[in-house]
Design a protein around this nucleic acid. Sequence first.
DNA 1: CGCGAGCTTGAGGCGATTCAACTGTCGTGG
DNA 2: CCACGACAGTTGAATCGCCTCAAGCTCGCG
Lengths: 246, 246
Amino acid sequence: MNALAPLSQAEEALVVAVASQTQTHGHGAELCGHGQQPARPRLVLSGWASRQRELPDGRRQIFGFILPGDTIWLGSRPRPLALCATVALTTMVTADARPLVAALATGDRRYAGLGAALDAASALDEAFLLDHLVRIGRQTAYERTGHLLLEMHWRLSLAGLARGQRFAMPLTQETLADALGLSVVHMNRTLQQLRRERLIRLQSGEVELLDPYTLARLTDFTAPHLEKVRGAGALVEGGGVRAELR
Amino acid sequence: MNALAPLSQAEEALVVAVASQTQTHGHGAELCGHGQQPARPRLVLSGWASRQRELPDGRRQIFGFILPGDTIWLGSRPRPLALCATVALTTMVTADARPLVAALATGDRRYAGLGAALDAASALDEAFLLDHLVRIGRQTAYERTGHLLLEMHWRLSLAGLARGQRFAMPLTQETLADALGLSVVHMNRTLQQLRRERLIRLQSGEVELLDPYTLARLTDFTAPHLEKVRGAGALVEGGGVRAELR
DNA sequence: CGCGAGCTTGAGGCGATTCAACTGTCGTGG
DNA sequence: CCACGACAGTTGAATCGCCTCAAGCTCGCG
């Protein structure tokens, strides 16, 4: 989170304090039903979730993934993306984030960094949504898949959860397919093609990008511009204090 | 706009005043380049625009359409959707909306309705983005097309720009195709199928929904819930004072 | 050991794309 | 007044990307 805006000591302390009050969600648990407000705002400490919608006949579209370090339902106002069905894809550990909301609500300027970080996160969410639309609307299965993997790597790197070009990716091919608008079978074949061309390694829930630059060129991937997302304010890259996420 | 939140007389007066200072944009004009801030916030009085992104090889994805009554770049903070390339699809007339921004910036409670309407509009924008993702990711060409037409009708009705089941739809099939992730040729054939099955009429820029209920069922369309979008505050449906848009 | 979930593979088919040509309707200018 | 080009829409034919159905595989786990 301090990669999105520099946090003061007071703010970091607050985050660490919040992280002591945890809750565990099993695989498949609904963190938020479609439409109604979720139980309470949460900070994700570990595990992956998806925001999604299902059609009456069973088709599913995943809007995006929630990764460790992300927040759920922490915006200043209700937003459709935050209100849609949110489902745990792995077992997850989350923390009750009400203290963060309370701190922000005071309007205390000591927590300005926190507010900036949340605004940046919300802007990033929206940017990912646009990328996702381009992927699904105008890219081939091959491009979509590579592009999504690069995005995941970028996000996890920002959160300090990637080791070089490798990262844990606990999603099934069915889940990836539902995110990318593909069938499971074609998802499988597409991943195999990426492996065959030595662009990725993928086994037992771990991805390695073997040639990220080529992959980025092939899939037209460019990393988000953090400066834009941060707005005019915070410009300093955050330090390394995120032990609470590991 | 007062369909999204009840506006006071002062607010309506402000909107009308703004609408006197107009500017005309030709077909194809860029209202906002990709990435950088647009010249200034604007209120659309007539004409359609699209928010879009283009890939280096020429493929184009349209994120959504901007209709008369919509605002451009009026949010409280920079948001990726508002920052992406915005192009006039017809000739447009827009008004300089800086007075509205100024009024909001005063924090004056007399302009609370205006703020609520803009928040609601922004939430609606995001909701449309999610619908768009489902369309493109998980619906057939036939479903996508019908669904989009229903959405357009709903939006135009809200703005008082539909006459019953009929409305002006000044988009080319190429534009529709780029929104729905289809080729022009297939867009054409899909529209013909909808006509053949007597679900729509479409000629010389005017659409008529011949059987909206069947169409909604076939395409899994449900109108947005205005109450949710409005937040807890404004609940009263707006009146009819929108002469400035006609 | 047997079961289930996820992954893999083949075969066949449909939906959507591409290429290419043709039509109709404008507005323009000779 | 008509020739002209530009543009949107339409149509046919061939092709391909992706889907569906179906079966077999692998692995972890009770």
